[in-house]
Design a protein around this nucleic acid. Structure first.
Length: 648
RNA sequence: GCGCCCGUAGCUCAGCCGGAUAGAGCGACUGGCUUCGAACCAGUAGGCCGGGGGUUCGAGUCCCUCCGGGCGCGCCA
């Protein structure tokens, strides 16, 4: 609702300035510093003052007089040295909020947006760093969908890379396991945990015995040829671990549409096609001398401003194999539908809610689902890869796809490290240097880190203790469900409360907290709102007909109270918050808004008893406010992927 | 050496293309449960927004510079 008025004001001011003075510059509209100043304001008069050589205050006055009536706006007030503040018509605003105006985007958007996230190497269990990736990506998807965008969620599976090869080498060479033995293990519980340990052990073994690296080479070679025991084992391991990852992510409410796999990129020769394109259009060139002799490289001038100081990037090695960046360029081309090739697809698995997730395959399938060919692509990838992501985008540009290069976004985020205190809890030995730092980086290769499922389990355990003590008589299964929802709420909120370029120093104590700026705080507010309405019903009262009782005049009477008015304005900002978060690419803003909204409701809850209100009209208003807050909290939590427990 | 990111209250962090008196949570201290359940609320203390220069009517926000910290810069992915 707020967003609607915000847009309306912005358009009115812009239109007026265009008509009267041929001004076409930007007009920034936002909430004033103090609520007493009004609901919205603009400082545009200060900008104009310079050009027009007039005092800003005079301009603000002219604007106030010239803009004319705006639907829903009661007054335009010049203020301070040149601000123009706006007061809403309270009765109108309340009534519009009641009728649900401004809740949905006016037009559904047809272009397809691809969001790629998670992308965990399928050779070990997911850890907290992967959780940040997946939660950020999933929440961004939910934000887009909430605003009417069509989104396709991809989770890229590198099932033929070094990491999988190392685990396979571990099974085969280090542990002398046969294919059927590994298959047996893969059918068991927590195969991803077993791989986690084996991966660490194999990596450690390489370090002690560098000659064992030949195992890796042999395995990679076998995987590429697709023949033999090692190749079969690689398939088995990767598939089993992908199933484990999807299960872990599903615990957090995260699902995917399609899993494009590296193996099909190889078999369907995506790279060969991309290579022809790159060569024909001169994006890459064959080096004939120097250290990169025999390699196809992308010149530094393609991706760097001061190319004198930068090395060119090898795309094809001197032995003819393609690097990661090369494969990623091919993959990006496919995402935009520019490769002229596609995968075949089959159903990988079905989620408990019936939704299907598809996987790429090289075997022809009956015509069915098609994926890729997006108009816009977001790649949720850790900021440590920004150099490589730049090269990939430069590849698009060098091919002449400048539009697509601009629509390919590296949705980057900083790593999740561990607090020193948490390292001690996990029994990780810290050097003296590390102890002084505020955080310590995790390492999958060394097996150091917090596994996602362990963390979720620990959160559920902590939440369950609280739930059990508060609701000892509730059925056990229900208590567990509530504890799970609280745990997931806490975890998702924790991963979202930081802006993307903040390094998270993960700390158990902090993450296990359910008070203050946390997910459960927001859930608690929403549960309270629903409890009021439920309790009201349990007393045998019927919910009043809000639309009939609360006409514009009634709204105006109740919203004359500054207290109620500020609460309603705060509650009505959900769309504005989502829109802002989308524009700035910061899911954290939605989390922040959810917290502020919950705070507002808790204030309301504490200050105004609803059920015990004796005046019927006022009670109806309070009940409506409760319902409105509840709906807004619910909506915001949905965007954050946080569920609403039946009680707390 | 080059590139990117960070530096705001004791701690962890917000701060919407530059706008009015810099905010929140935690921690500390004081108070509030026989009410719609206190996973809550009200209040107090706590700041030269890393230092210095510049642009501007106006700078936590933009530019330059220095200091401190992190991450990248492979024919690994």
């Amino acid at each position: 609702m707020f967003h609607l008025l915000e847009k309306r004001l912005q358009e009115a001011v812009s239109a007026h300035l265009a008509a009267c003075c041929e001004y076409a510059g930007p007009v920034a509209v936002g909430a004033p510093a103090q609520p007493e100043f009004g609901e919205l304001g603009t400082a545009v008069a200060f900008q104009l003052a310079r050009q027009w050589k007039k005092p800003p205050r005079a301009i603000a006055q002219e604007l106030a007089a010239g803009i004319g009536a705006i639907e829903g706006v009661a007054a335009l007030e010049p203020a301070g040295n040149g601000y123009l503040n706006v007061r809403f018509e309270r009765g109108y605003y309340g009534r519009q909020a009641l009728e649900g105006a401004g809740g949905v985007p006016a037009t559904a958007r047809t272009e397809k947006i691809i969001v790629e996230h998670t992308n965990i190497n399928p050779n070990k269990a997911a850890h907290i760093g992967h959780l940040r990736n997946a939660v950020l990506g999933d929440t961004f998807v939910r934000m887009l969908r909430a605003r009417g965008y069509q989104v396709e969620v991809q989770n890229y599976i590198d099932n033929t890379g070094v990491q999988v090869a190392d685990v396979v080498a571990g099974f085969h060479f280090l542990e002398n396991k046969a294919l059927d033995q590994v298959a047996e293990l893969a059918r068991g519980e927590r195969f991803d945990y077993l791989c986690w340990d084996l991966y660490a052990r194999t990596s450690a073994y390489y370090k002690e015995h560098p000659e064992a690296l030949a195992w890796r080479a042999e395995t990679l070679h076998a995987v590429e040829s697709g023949q033999g025991v090692l190749a079969g084992m690689a398939h088995l391991v990767a598939d089993a671990v992908v199933h484990a990852h999807l299960k872990t992510m599903w615990r957090l409410g995260i699902a995917y549409d399609v899993l494009p796999r590296e193996s099909e990129i190889l078999h369907l020769k995506f790279w060969a096609t991309a290579f022809d394109l790159l060569r024909q259009r001169g994006a890459i060139q064959l080096e004939t001398e120097g250290k990169n002799s025999g390699c196809w490289v992308m010149p530094a001038s393609s991706f760097s401003d001061d190319s004198a100081d930068q090395d060119s990037k090898v795309i094809v090695r001197s032995n003819g194999t393609v690097t990661y960046v090369g494969k990623d360029i091919a993959y990006q081309l496919w995402k935009f539908g520019l490769l002229g090739k596609d995968f075949f697809y089959r159903v990988w698995s079905v989620y408990p809610d019936g939704k299907q997730v598809w996987v790429s395959t090289d075997e022809p399938q009956p015509a069915g689902h098609a994926f890729g060919a997006g108009a816009r692509v977001y790649n949720v990838i850790d900021s440590r890869q920004s150099y490589l992501q730049n090269v990939v985008v430069a590849g698009l540009r060098a091919l002449g796809y400048t539009d697509q290069a601009e629509r390919s976004v590296h949705f980057s985020y900083e790593m999740v490290a561990l607090s020193p205190r948490t390292c001690v809890e996990l029994g990780i030995q810290l050097s003296e240097e590390d102890q002084k730092r505020s955080y310590v980086e995790v390492s999958g290769r060394k097996g150091l880190g917090v596994k996602a499922d362990d963390l979720i389990d620990k959160l559920i355990e902590t939440a369950a203790r609280e739930v059990d003590s508060r609701h000892p008589d509730a059925p056990a299964a229900e208590r567990l469900q509530v504890a799970t929802q609280i745990a997931i709420g806490a975890l998702r909120y924790f991963m979202l409360k930081f802006t993307r370029n903040t390094v998270i120093a993960f700390d158990f104590q902090e993450a296990l907290s359910f008070e203050g700026d946390t997910g459960p705080y927001v859930q608690y507010a929403a549960v309270r709102a629903r409890n009021i309405l439920r309790k009201f019903g349990e007393r045998g009262d019927k919910l009043p007909d809000f639309a009939a009782i609360l006409d514009e005049n009634a709204m105006r009477r109740h919203l004359a109270s500054e207290d109620f008015w500020q609460l309603l304005v705060a509650a009505s900002k959900a769309d504005a918050a989502i829109e802002w978060a989308l524009a700035s690419g910061e899911p954290a803003h939605v989390a922040k808004f959810a917290f502020t909204l919950a705070q507002s409701f808790n204030n309301f809850y504490h200050a105004h008893p609803v059920i015990h209100e004796e005046n019927a009209e006022r009670r109806a208003f309070l009940l409506w406010m409760t319902a409105y807050f509840g709906a807004q909290l619910d909506r915001t939590l949905t965007v954050l992927g946080i569920e609403l427990p039946v009680y707390m």
